[in-house]
Write a protein that binds this DNA or RNA. Structure first.
Lengths: 201, 201
DNA sequence: CAAAATATTGTATGAGCATACAAAAATTTG
DNA sequence: CAAATTTTTGTATGCTCATACAATATTTTG
């Protein structure tokens, strides 16, 4: 029984923090706001968590999971390496999530992680996961030295599109971002490799 | 005489703010830190500026000018449109400035500009300048509807590389970033257009 | 040089916030 | 149901910081 209520409250606070994060970014996250968003009184946070940073940590994991679920779902459906690569690209731009406020919130997480070792570890983890997913699509069609460069290119295009969405004066839509990245990826691979990837499960 | 000392102090404070910005990002900028960095006592800021935000505003302009000078210098030397495009790309990655702390500071500026209309205007201005520079290189070799997409692609690669530098676990060097962007740009344009651009002054 | 103007210092004030915690309320237990 | 335990509330404390400003120092002017 004790476990249960504790888990529920922690989860509610994490989700409250997530909603506040999407609206105000990391800097707009105050303990008061988190608790209010979770429908609890302001002091409750320090009862269920050591401090605000702990909530932040779990909130970011939660936020990442929301996006990763989109990626994973699409990857599972993909019948071959090429479609898996497309699944990764498309999964990183879900219609409902590719939005200025949210993009900005993610940016603020990047900024914060430069000064918080815990968040930095998370950030590295997310990045390694993305890199390893991309690698697994192309490692059979190019030599080992070429892979990192290709991976960096795709990652830069994905992150860059989010940054663009957050900040640029001419906003890009998710369809445009996907299309743009897909086009550049096709250039980089060439039709021979794309064909090959379509043949590998 | 009055003008002179006022201008000097304002400039010193702006440069102090710039140094603090590079080290700590926008969030690490306190009035005390700015004044200390400028070698003055903590109260001086409100004598020469309306408030901290005004210093911030001028500091960001200053910071942008440092990079833009790199771009402009290279552009002036470029004999044709292709070299001008390369000048823009290379100018956005000066050896001494393409560094994690600085990249992070810029990111924090992007985040802040989402909530500060003054900074947002600056940010739009910077972006329009970049877009217009890129456009002017390619507007003779592609039809008008294709230009924005190409511009977005290059801008995304530039911004994305900075984001990558700030945050990714595998850091990219300026040479690698330039090379990667150049490669993707060549793919996107094709050798015919590149050849054409080399012929247009 | 003395009076006036200007520049600089150091600090007081108050706002916003994280955190701890005493008191109150709700729930569980015997 | 009453005592014990758990959960929740509301607030007090202390910190960091921006800003204003009185007091002091420096420079200018006549």
């Amino acid at each position: 029984m004790k476990r249960s209520i504790e888990d529920i409250r922690r989860q509610e606070l994490i989700e409250g923090a997530y909603r506040a994060f999407l609206q105000f970014g990391i800097d707009g996250l105050t303990t008061a706001r988190i608790c209010k968003e979770a429908g609890m009184s302001p002091g409750i946070l320090s009862y269920y968590f050591k401090n605000k940073d702990e909530v932040l940590f779990w909130m970011v994991r939660h936020a990442n999971r929301v996006i990763m679920d989109e990626v994973v779902t699409r990857m599972k459906r993909a019948p071959n390496r090429w479609d898996r690569l497309l699944a990764i690209i498309e999964g990183n731009f879900p219609e409902t999530l590719f939005e200025q406020n949210i993009a900005n919130a993610w940016l603020s997480f990047y900024v914060a992680s430069a000064r918080d070792p815990q968040l930095e570890r998370l950030q590295r983890l997310f990045h390694r996961r993305l890199a390893s997913n991309i690698s697994s699509c192309v490692d059979q069609v190019m030599d080992d030295e070429s892979v990192p460069r290709f991976v960096a290119m795709v990652a830069i295009l994905i992150d860059g599109s989010w940054l663009h969405r957050a900040a640029a004066s001419t906003k890009i839509s998710n369809a445009e971002a996907i299309d743009l990245i897909k086009t550049q990826v096709e250039y980089a691979l060439g039709s021979a490799k794309v064909g090959e990837m379509k043949r590998i499960k």
